[in-house]
């Protein structure tokens, strides 16, 4: 039996794709070939923004989805999208695992949507990229035209940031930065290399805060139709998949960072925020986040509690990693 896995990623050789391929082979091996995973790359089966519905309806059997596109249907899962706390791939996904472990409402929500979560990974750290000057604090915007993430738009309004918020499509980002339609944009470190944004950005600031969590979902009916053994294989692989994905994400961030710093033609001026700078951004973001959580709590009251659980786990796991390193580095 072949299960279709739909991903927005291009089929390049990179650590996270290697993990996905490994997972697909491992499922096949451990089920003695009773399940075969066919990967459909780069939105060729379903568009990423329609992923949740595509999996729900069965066009794809499995695939990553972004909770942001379907917030009304999954207000709890939407809590996994952070602006506060560490954006480290491992910290975020491990914190989310602990926050949702035995948290009944989130399982009910997935079941209501006809989905069965079988793993998750994090986008990793956000970056501020720009052509004028590094955006180390909100004061650095100095009237620039900037492409902001949705909640940064509210933060900008609440704190009166000196900038013009410009909406352009992700596809136009490259030429927009090149030609000065925008002076800067918020993005993710892992996107910079594949989309060549280092060719047009002069300054990159690794903010260290905020990330997007990407749950991998399976169609609930397909899940229900699996044999006990097949279910067991997929469940056993979940923690391994999550950890490998976190590690791969960190490797990709490292590769991207190296590329940005040492590219023969397109090097950027690379900055990492200090703790004080990070706290300043977090303070500015706080009112926008409160509003966001309150909105989601209107749809499901459990959202507030989940948000608190996740935030405290983010701090706990970050502390742990600071003291003991990542699990694969521990003895």
């Amino acid at each position: 039996r072949t299960l279709n896995y739909a991903t927005p990623a291009p089929p390049t050789e990179r650590p996270s794709n290697d993990v996905l391929r490994w997972w697909a082979e491992e499922v096949e091996r451990r089920t003695d070939g009773s399940i075969e995973i066919k990967i459909h790359w780069l939105q060729s089966l379903i568009k990423f923004k329609d992923a949740a519905r595509g999996i729900q309806s069965g066009i794809a059997d499995i695939g990553p989805m972004s909770p942001e596109y379907t917030m009304a249907q999954n207000p709890l899962l939407a809590m996994s999208q952070t602006e506060l706390g560490s954006g480290d791939n491992y910290v975020a996904s491990e914190a989310w695992r602990r926050a949702t472990d035995d948290f009944e409402p989130i399982e009910q929500e997935a079941a209501r949507n006809g989905l069965k979560p079988i793993g998750f990974y994090s986008s990793g750290v956000r970056v501020n990229m720009s052509t004028t000057r590094p955006y180390l604090t909100p004061d650095d915007f100095k009237g620039d035209k900037v492409r902001l993430t949705p909640r940064a738009v509210s933060a900008a309004a609440a704190n009166d940031w000196d900038l013009t918020s410009v909406n352009i499509t992700f596809t136009d980002l490259y030429s927009g930065m090149e030609r000065g339609t925008i002076d800067g944009a918020q993005s993710y470190l892992y996107l910079m290399a594949p989309y060549k944004h280092n060719e047009v950005a002069k300054y990159v600031v690794e903010t260290g805060i905020g990330q997007s969590l990407v749950p991998v979902m399976m169609n609930a009916r397909v899940w229900g139709s699996l044999s006990a053994k097949e279910k067991q294989v997929i469940q056993e692989l979940e923690p391994v998949f999550n950890e490998k994905m976190a590690k791969a994400g960190l490797e990709e961030a490292e590769i991207a960072k190296n590329l940005l710093k040492t590219h023969p033609k397109y090097t950027v001026d690379y900055h990492v925020l200090t703790d004080e700078q990070r706290q300043l951004w977090e303070q500015h973001f706080a009112p926008a986040i409160d509003e966001y959580v309150a909105d989601m709590a209107k749809r499901d009251p459990a959202a507030s509690e989940l948000h608190q659980r996740f935030l405290s786990q983010l701090q706990a796991v970050e502390q742990e990693v600071r003291e003991q390193g990542y699990p694969w580095d521990r003895n």
Binding site: K49, Y69, M71, V153
Partner: peptide, 10 residues
């Protein structure tokens, strides 16, 4: 029914 808000709408 769900009161869906368009993605990333300010």
């Amino acid at each position: 029914e769900f009161g869906v808000i368009a993605y990333a709408s300010a």
